[in-house]
Design a protein around this nucleic acid. Structure first.
Lengths: 225, 225
DNA sequence: CCTACCGATCGGTAGG
DNA sequence: CCTACCGATCGGTAGG
């Protein structure tokens, strides 16, 4: 069976929707989710304003769809690569190091999509803020689970405060992103990696054997360097 | 000599300007420096739009004036109270603890003015971004000077990396502000205070005598509690 | 500080 | 997906 004209039309609609969202997440990372305007998206993509509008129905729905799209990219880029790692502390490191690469390599041109969106909406009640808070909680929980796994496996000091550790790790990630963007200072990523490595070794019961596994991403991709 | 009509008019103009900027910094902390609109300021203050406009000449100048006003409040509230402290490490603590109080007590209703403004402008070149980068650098330098003072006085380990310590302290402050705003979680401030205290004690050559001086602000104001 | 106005852009709608 | 349109609001100006 060949594709029907209806299938074709649906597929084309999906492609347009994806193109809109790709542009929307980029713009939002640079100028904010509120700075995102339907008219500008239309101009950039050379379609009509109402053509963009029809895909979402309101600006708020567009913002929510952009958040979903950004979550999917984040999952692919930061979360998935670390999921097969069995050791909690090493998984925590891979997640953190993957996040630093995600920020440094400008997967979104304005730096971490969520960093900007959260600062923008943290004082504005509504569905957008709720969606951002949920995404943030999931990320916290993912790191928290890795820390708890490590503790249950006896890889950390018995009285490890997993929430405190996660708070500190995330603080370093966001500070690296923010400092790098505002001051164009690449050392911020090194400072964050140093701080996180130090915290993980401090929590570990076997720092000597953990240390060589906390290598930066670049070393893994290019072992000859 | 009594005040001339001209003096009177100048004084009234100053009062209006101050009222505009007080409102402007509050709005900007909640909705961003770009979300700040001249028309809305005029409505809120019950004066005409061009009346607001005349004080600044452009929206960018209004934004720059709002940053200056926020810097003055920040100085008064966070920087000055710690300046008389002779010990570098204790001064660093007082600055950090004062910052947490400034965020927690919502000196600006949307949390730290600079946290929001920096996330908003860190990817937009221009005078506003430059002013924010300068303010950020001054804050970094102020904390860095306190750390260097401590090191020169022999209060820290000899090979202390002052920039690394400052990076970590600021990371904890901003994470506390962001987490508290997005999740309405007061524990974020305790986590930041715990983390900073731990870092300072770790850097100190005399942690046992330093520890009792790293008390939270509330304890100082109400010793009976 | 005011009124009155400008062109541009905003989100959103009607009708196709 | 389109054209054509709506009221509201934006930053900014003219003239006082």
């Amino acid at each position: 069976m060949t594709a029907s004209p209806t299938d074709e039309r649906i597929r084309k609609g999906d492609r347009t929707r994806r193109a809109i969202l790709a542009r929307a997440t980029d713009i939002a990372s640079l100028e904010g989710l509120e700075g995102l305007s339907i008219g500008r998206l239309a101009t950039d993509l050379a379609i009509s304003k109402s053509g963009v509008f029809a895909h979402f129905g309101s600006k708020e729905e567009l913002q929510l769809a952009a958040i979903d799209a950004a979550v999917a990219i984040y999952r692919q880029r930061v979360v998935l690569p670390a999921q097969s790692e069995p050791s909690g502390l090493v998984r925590l490191w891979l997640l953190a190091d993957g996040w630093l690469a995600y920020s440094r390599e400008r997967v979104f041109p304005g730096g971490c999509f969520f960093f900007n969106a959260q600062a923008e909406f943290d004082a504005r009640p509504g569905r957008v803020r709720d969606a951002l808070a949920t995404a943030s909680s999931r990320w916290h929980d993912l790191l928290g689970k890795a820390a708890e796994d490590a503790r249950c496996a006896g890889d950390t000091v018995a009285d490890l405060d997993a929430d405190q550790l996660v708070f500190e790790v995330i603080a370093f990630l966001e500070a690296a992103n923010g400092t790098n963007l505002l001051h164009e200072d690449g050392r911020a990523y090194d400072r964050a990696a140093t701080a996180i490595r130090s915290r993980l070794l401090n929590a570990s019961t076997a720092p000597a054997s953990l240390a060589p596994r906390l290598t930066p991403r670049g070393d893994l991709r290019d072992p000859a360097a």
